[in-house]
Amino acid sequence: MHTRKHILVIGGGVAGMESAIHLCDMGYEVTLIEKQDQLGGHVLKWDFLFPDHRPAYEITNELCPAVEEKATIKLQTEVKNIVRQNGHFEVALSDGEKLTADALLVATGFDLFDAHKKEEYGYGIYDNVITAAELEERFQNKIPIRTAAGKKPARVGFVHCVGSRDEKVGNEYCSKVCCVTAVKQAMRVRESLPGCEVFCFYMDLRMFGRYFEDLYREAQEKWGVQFIRGRLSEAAEDIDQRIIVKLEDTLAGRPLRMAVDLLVLLTGFVPSEGTRRMATMLNLPLGNDRFIKPSDEHLRRNLTPVPGVFVTGASAGPRSISESISDARAAALEIAAWFNNSSQHAI
């Protein structure tokens, strides 16, 4: 059995919490720091989850008390500086505290792509262009879906791949979860506004997960969501504040121009400010997507080339919640294996 090693988990989203719980269960001393005033990360802002529509709070309701019971939690705290010294990490925190850790787990996650950067879609300029996160917030707060002028929308459009698979904004990767999120949200809009027409404008539908395809079929067959394959070229506002979208319907092989009352942008993942900062501070290699690159994409997905530094969750690329949770458990095991292998102990 190992001596009681101390692990600093940086980031209190689902990946950080799940790893911390498992590390504690394995007998390690764990400190988890989170820059926000609450544990939970992005999941706190989601109302319900794909593919089974379960409430998102069920995830945080299970993870937050468990981690609070087992680990030392420091909220509104960030890493200011890290020095590797005598096989340990001397970490200076934003609250002035200094602590010593035997290993670091980077779980700083992702930020949502800033939709302002897709200037042609008019986010922040046109009143009726919103992001999927803002729509989810309305779901969560039971705010009826209305236009900026307070009218029931007769037509809602969802734009997939905003800031993903897009060379123009420098993000060539797929963010994985946006397709199914759009399907999930489109169904909810149809459910809450029965007369409303709902369109999804997509490049490809990447229904990679279990039951995702079922969701996609249900969206069409039960809810009448219309899927149009084509990437928006632009959005503009008309005199009635409707959003005029232009795209090429690549299945019909013709240009399409359509007015919607509300346009929802499915913004993708980008490395969070914290992930970028930790990568710089710890000299961690990045993939061409600018997320942290593990030592081996197949065999050691949580190990980094820097001894004693591990990565989990969306810090290492776009992931769903269930993937992040599996990955977090794998990270805990990876850390334990690393401690157990005394030949790798020297930092």
Partner: peptide, 10 residues
């Protein structure tokens, strides 16, 4: 139309 949005972009 949010003119501030345009000004931020400008």
């Amino acid at each position: 139309m949010k003119i501030e949005g345009k000004r931020a972009l400008w």
